[in-house]
Nucleic acid binder design. Structure first.
Length: 908
RNA sequence: GGGCGCUUGGCUCAGUUGGUUAGAGCGACUGGUUUACACCCAGUAGGUCGGGAGUUCGAAUCUCUCAGCGCCCACCA
C-alpha cells in the first residue's frame, strides 16, 4: 500500500518528470520502438520569435500540439514534433535598437558587425528563456532536431530557394511604390503599417480648369495627371485632353484620365494624380501609363527638383506651399474638419511616406516554367482542389479557406527586401563599378550582377546591403528543418532537394497548428514556398486556434497591463491545469477568455485524478492485481464502467482525430469525475467481489491515465509510477483499445443496465430527501414495486449499493404487487415504481402539488408526441427510425402518466 | 467600402450532417467531517437558444432581414 499526500502539488513533480522524459530519449522518434510499417506523424512547431518570452497564446499552441503528438506517439505512429525559433528580423532588430537608444547609441554608430554581435547576444538569451518555457509546459518535442530560421542549414535553404527563383525569373529588382518609414529608413510590409484616424485640413485648390480637393497640397509638385470617373458628366469632354496648370513653381502639364476607381462624390469628383507618392494614384497611373515624378526623398524631405522648397520636410513644405498658393489666389477654400486615416509605422509611429524605391520582389503572377502555373495559381489550387497528386490542404475551421482565397487571389508581388541588418542578407552581389542603386534593367549585362549561394570569386564584388523579409525563411520551415546539415540541401534541374532520411520520413507534415492571425503571413507563405521549391505541399491539414483574451474579452497587451505570463500560471496551478484551461472550453478559430477561476477549476481536476489514484492505491496493490479479470465475479457496476470506458476510448479518439480537443477533454472529465469517482468507486465501496473489482479498478484507472496523458502529461506520468511495475514511461505506453473493453463488458452476465436503474433509484431517493428536508440521520424505508421477477432479483443484487450510497435507507421492501403506501413520495422509473414513506415530513399538499406539476408536464409532453404522430405529413415524410422512436416515447409516456395518476389518487 | 464571425440560464462557453422534454463548468441556494479528495460530497433553482419573417413533417442548427458586439482586409485623393 502506498501513501500519497492528500493534495497533488505540481511543483514537486513537474521538473523531475520532464527530465525523465528527456533522458528517456523518447521525444526522438528514432528511439521509439515502432512497428516496421508504422505511419509517421509530424508537426513543425511554429517557431516563436527570439524577441523575449512566450505569452499565453504560445502556451495554448504548445498544449494543442502536444496533445496531438502524445496521442499519436501512444497510437504507435513514428511521431516527430520539431521545435525551433524564428529570428524575426524586424521585431528583433527593433528591440535591440531600443536597448541601444537607452544606452545613448545606435546601430549606425556601432556598425554592422558590432550591431549584429549585439543582436546575437540578445537572441541567445531570449532563446534560452523560450526553450525553458516550452519545457515547463510539458512539450514533448524533439530537442535534438531543434532548428533556427537563421542557422547555417536554414541559411543554405534560403539562399538556394532565392537563387532558384532568380533563375526562374520570378525574382526581380524594381522600383515600386512602397511604405517607407523616414525614421527607420526601411520599407514596411503592409501588415507593419497601422492607421490612425485624424482630423486634418482639406484644401480646395484651383487647378487649371478644375477645382479639386486634397489633403496634401505639397504633392502637387509631383502631379502628372487629373483623374475623373468615366461616367461623370461634368468632366466628360475633358477626358484625354492635356491642360496647363498654374502652380507655385510655374505652370506644368497634366493629362486628364477617366478611371473607375475615382469616387465622383469625393470633393469635386476630380482628383490630382501623384504617381510617386500615393498608392492609389500609382495604381491609376500604371493603368494609364502616366509618367511618375518623385519629389520626396528617403528622409521625408522635398527633393532638389522642388525649387525653393527643396530640403524642407513635407509638413513644412505643405505650409509654405499653401501660403504661396494663397498669394497666387489659387486656394478656393479650406475644410478644417476633414477626417481621414493616416498610415504610421507600427514601431515608431512616424507617418509613412509612400515612395518609389528600389527593392527585390517575387513575381506572383509569372508562370513557373516547370509547372506552367504562377505562384498565385499554384497556391490557390493547392487549397481549392489539390495539386501534385496530393489531396487538397484542409483548413480547420473551414471558414478560413475563404479568407485564404481572398487574400491569395488579391496577392501582389511580394517585396522581400528589407533595409535592416538582422536577417538573411540578400544573396546578390554587384560589381562595384555598377553601383547598386541602379535600375534592374541596367543589369542586362550579367557580368555586373551575381546571384548565388556562395559569394562570387574574384575581386570587386559587393553584396547587397539589404536583408530578406523574415517570412522568406519561415516560409521554408516545414522542410528546411528536416535537413541536418547544409550539404543535404541542393538544387538540381531547377528543383530543391533535401537529402535526408527525416525529409523522406516526415514530409509533408501532418498538420500545421497555429493562430489564425498568421494565416496570411506564414501559412500562405509556406504554401507558396513549398509548392514552388519542392513541388509538394507542406502539410495536409491546417488547424487554427483563436487568440487568448483576458477575463473581460480584451486583447492582452503590455500597455494594458493585462498580460498573463504562462509561467506564473504554471508556478501557481501547474502546467497541467494551465494546459487544460487553454484547451477545454475553446473552439477552433474562435477567441477565448481566460480567467483565474477557470484555471483553478482545472487545478481541482488534476487533484481529483490524483485522489482517485490515491484511493485506489490504498485499496489495491496494482502490481498484484491479476489479469485477466475474473469475469464471473463481476457485477453490473463493473459491466457498466467497462462499457463506459470502451465508449470513452472511442469517442476521445474520434474527437482528437477531428481536432475537437475541447469535447474530448470534457468527456474525459465527465467519465473521471461523474462516472468513475462519484458512481463506480462509491458503489465499489459496498460491493463484495473485491478481487475482481480491484482488477477492474486498476485496469480502468491505468487506461484512464493513458487517455488523459496527452492533456495532462505531468500528473498522469507521476501517478503512473505507482501503477506500472515495469518502470516504463506512460508517454511511451500504448493507447488502450475500445474493443477489449466492449468484449469484456459483454462477457459479464450482469448487465450494465441494472446499474443504471440502481443509479436512477438512488438519485430519486436523494432528491426526495433533499426536497422534503429529511434530516441527515433519519433512516427511511424504501418500497419498490416491480412486476417482473427478474427485475426484483436484479434490485435485490444491488441492495447494498442502494442502501449505502447517501440514501440513508434502513430497509428495502420489494413488492410483487402494487400496494398503497401512505404518506409516501412516489416515483416511476423505467417501468418500476418506488415509494418512500416520509413519515411526518411529508406534506400531503406539497406532494400533491409536486405530483400535479409532474402530471401536467408529462401530459403536455404526451400531447406534443401525439400531435406529431397524428400529423400525416410527419408519418409520411419522416424517416421510419424517428417515427418508431416517437411511438416508443408515446407508450412510455402513457404508462408514466397512468402511474402518476395512481400516485395522486393514493395520496388521500 | 469589402469580407468573416458572435449573440444560448447571473458569468464563461459546448451543442459535429436539422430529429429524444437544449448541456457543462463557475456562481447562487439547501444540506452534509460519508472507506481518496472541502481543490470534496448530495441536492435545488435558473434558459426556448438577440428580434422578425421564411424553408421543412420537424429549426438553437438552413435561408432572408433587422439590431447590437467583435475581428480581418482595403484605405480614398
Amino acid at each position: 500500500m502506498q501513501t500519497l499526500p492528500s493534495a497533488y502539488s505540481p511543483r514537486d513533480h513537474e521538473p523531475q518528470i520532464y527530465k525523465k522524459w528527456e533522458k528517456s530519449g523518447y521525444f526522438n522518434p528514432n528511439n521509439l520502438k515502432c512497428r516496421n510499417n508504422a505511419r509517421t506523424y509530424c508537426i513543425m512547431m511554429p517557431p516563436p520569435n527570439v524577441t523575449g518570452t512566450l505569452h499565453i497564446g504560445h502556451a495554448g499552441m504548445l498544449a494543442y500540439e502536444d496533445i496531438l503528438i502524445r496521442y499519436h506517439r501512444m497510437k504507435g505512429d513514428r511521431t516527430l514534433w520539431l521545435p525551433g525559433t524564428d529570428h524575426a528580423a524586424i521585431a528583433t532588430q527593433t528591440k535591440v535598437e531600443k536597448v541601444l537608444k537607452k544606452e545613448g547609441t545606435n546601430r549606425h554608430k556601432l556598425g554592422r558587425k558590432a550591431f549584429l554581435d549585439r543582436v546575437e547576444v540578445f537572441t541567445k538569451e531570449s532563446h534560452n528563456t523560450i526553450v525553458d518555457q516550452i519545457k515547463k509546459m510539458g512539450s514533448s518535442c524533439d530537442w535534438s532536431r531543434e532548428a533556427y530560421t537563421l542557422d547555417e542549414t536554414r541559411h543554405k535553404a534560403v539562399y538556394s530557394v532565392f537563387k532558384m527563383m532568380y533563375d526562374d525569373g520570378l525574382i526581380y529588382r524594381g522600383e515600386r511604390i512602397v511604405n517607407w518609414c523616414p525614421r527607420c529608413h526601411s520599407t514596411l510590409a503592409n501588415d507593419e503599417v497601422e492607421y490612425t484616424e485624424e482630423t486634418a485640413k482639406l484644401y480646395w485648390i484651383k487647378y487649371g480648369p478644375f477645382i479639386l480637393a486634397t489633403a496634401r497640397p505639397e504633392t502637387k509638385l509631383g502631379d502628372t495627371a487629373v483623374a475623373v470617373h468615366p461616367d461623370d458628366k461634368r468632366y466628360k469632354n475633358m477626358v484625354n485632353k492635356e491642360y496647363e496648370i498654374p502652380g507655385v513653381l510655374g505652370t506644368f502639364k497634366i493629362k486628364v484620365v477617366a478611371d473607375e476607381e475615382v469616387n465622383p462624390k469625393f470633393g469635386s469628383g476630380a482628383i490630382k494624380i501623384t504617381p510617386a507618392h500615393s498608392f492609389a494614384d500609382n495604381k491609376i497611373a500604371q493603368k494609364h501609363n502616366l509618367p511618375s515624378k518623385k519629389i520626396i526623398d528617403e528622409d521625408g524631405k522635398m527633393m532638389k527638383n522642388c525649387g525653393k522648397y527643396a530640403g524642407m520636410p513635407t509638413k513644412e513644405a505643405r505650409e509654405a506651399i499653401v501660403k504661396d498658393m494663397a498669394k497666387m489666389g489659387i486656394i478656393d477654400h479650406i475644410d478644417e474638419n476633414y477626417k481621414h486615416n493616416i498610415s504610421r509605422c507600427y514601431r515608431c509611429d512616424t507617418p509613412i511616406e509612400p515612395l518609389p524605391s528600389l527593392q527585390w520582389f517575387i513575381d506572383v503572377n509569372k508562370k513557373i516554367p516547370r509547372y506552367g502555373k504562377s505562384i498565385k495559381e499554384l497556391s490557390v489550387e493547392t487549397v481549392r482542389k489539390g495539386v501534385f497528386n496530393r489531396q487538397k490542404i484542409k483548413i480547420c475551421p473551414k471558414r478560413f479557406e475563404k479568407n485564404y482565397f481572398h487574400w491569395m487571389e488579391n496577392l501582389q508581388d511580394w517585396c522581400v527586401s528589407r533595409q535592416i541588418w538582422f536577417g538573411h542578407r540578400i544573396p546578390v552581389w554587384y560589381k562595384e563599378s555598377s553601383k547598386f542603386k541602379v535600375q534592374s534593367s541596367k543589369f542586362k549585362n550579367k557580368k555586373e550582377i551575381y546571384v548565388g549561394i556562395k559569394p562570387p570569386t574574384g575581386k570587386g564584388w559587393v553584396q547587397d546591403k539589404d536583408t530578406l523579409d523574415t517570412w522568406f525563411s519561415s516560409g521554408l520551415w516545414t522542410f528546411s528543418t528536416l535537413a541536418d546539415s547544409p550539404n543535404q540541401i541542393s538544387v538540381k534541374n531547377g528543383k530543391l532537394y533535401i537529402d535526408s532520411q527525416d525529409f523522406k520520413d516526415f514530409h509533408p507534415t501532418q498538420v500545421l497548428e497555429t493562430g489564425y492571425d498568421i494565416l496570411f503571413f506564414w501559412i500562405a507563405r509556406m504554401i507558396i514556398m513549398t509548392t514552388y521549391a519542392l513541388g509538394d505541399i507542406p502539410f495536409y491539414d491546417v488547424y487554427l486556434h483563436g487568440l487568448v483574451l483576458d477575463k473581460k474579452g480584451k486583447k492582452m497587451s503590455k500597455s494594458k497591463g493585462n498580460v498573463v505570463d504562462p509561467l506564473d500560471l504554471v508556478r501557481e496551478y501547474g502546467a497541467d491545469a494551465t494546459r487544460l484551461s487553454l484547451v477545454i472550453g475553446s473552439t477552433p478559430g474562435t477567441d477565448m477568455r481566460l480567467a483565474k477561476e477557470k484555471i483553478e477549476g482545472y487545478r481541482n481536476l488534476a487533484n481529483k485524478l490524483w485522489n482517485i489514484g490515491r484511493y485506489i492505491l490504498q485499496k489495491t496493490t496494482p502490481s498484484d492485481t491479476s489479469y485477466p479479470i475474473n469475469i464471473k465475479d463481476c457485477t453490473s457496476a463493473d459491466a457498466w464502467i467497462l462499457k463506459k470506458m470502451g465508449e470513452l476510448i472511442k469517442t476521445v479518439e474520434k474527437d482528437i482525430q477531428q481536432y475537437r480537443f475541447s469535447q474530448a477533454g470534457e468527456k474525459l472529465r465527465e467519465f473521471m469525475w461523474d462516472d468513475l469517482a462519484d458512481w463506480y468507486i462509491e458503489a465499489s465501496k459496498y460491493e463484495e467481489n473485491v478481487e475482481a473489482k480491484n482488477t477492474v479498478l486498476v485496469l480502468v484507472f491505468k487506461d484512464l491515465l493513458k487517455l488523459w496523458h496527452p492533456y495532462i502529461p505531468f500528473v498522469t506520468e507521476t501517478l503512473w509510477v505507482y501503477f506500472d511495475s515495469n518502470r516504463s514511461l506512460l508517454m511511451a505506453s500504448s493507447w488502450p483499445s475500445a474493443d477489449t473493453y466492449e468484449k469484456i463488458a459483454n462477457m459479464i452476465k450482469n448487465d450494465a443496465c441494472q446499474f443504471i436503474l440502481t443509479k436512477k433509484i438512488i438519485t430519486a431517493v436523494r432528491s426526495a430527501r433533499s426536497v422534503y428536508r429529511i434530516k441527515t440521520g433519519i433512516k427511511l424505508e424504501l418500497f419498490i414495486y416491480a412486476k417482473d421477477r427478474s427485475t426484483r432479483t436484479e434490485i435485490e443484487d444491488q441492495k447494498s449499493i442502494l442502501l449505502n450510497l447517501r440514501t440513508e435507507i434502513a430497509k428495502i421492501t420489494l413488492l410483487k404487487e402494487r400496494r398503497q403506501i401512505k404518506n409516501a413520495f412516489a416515483a416511476t422509473i423505467d417501468g418500476i415504481e418506488i415509494f418512500l414513506p416520509l413519515k411526518d415530513a411529508i406534506d400531503i399538499n406539497k406532494e400533491r402539488k409536486r405530483l400535479q406539476g409532474e402530471y401536467n408536464n408529462a401530459n403536455k409532453y404526451l400531447q406534443t408526441i401525439e400531435r406529431k404522430l397524428q400529423n400525416r405529413d410527419f408519418t409520411r415524410k419522416a424517416p421510419k427510425k424517428i417515427i418508431e422512436s416517437e411511438k416508443t416515447k408515446l407508450k412510455h409516456q402513457k404508462l408514466k402518466i397512468n402511474k402518476i395518476k395512481t400516485f395522486l389518487s393514493s395520496l388521500e
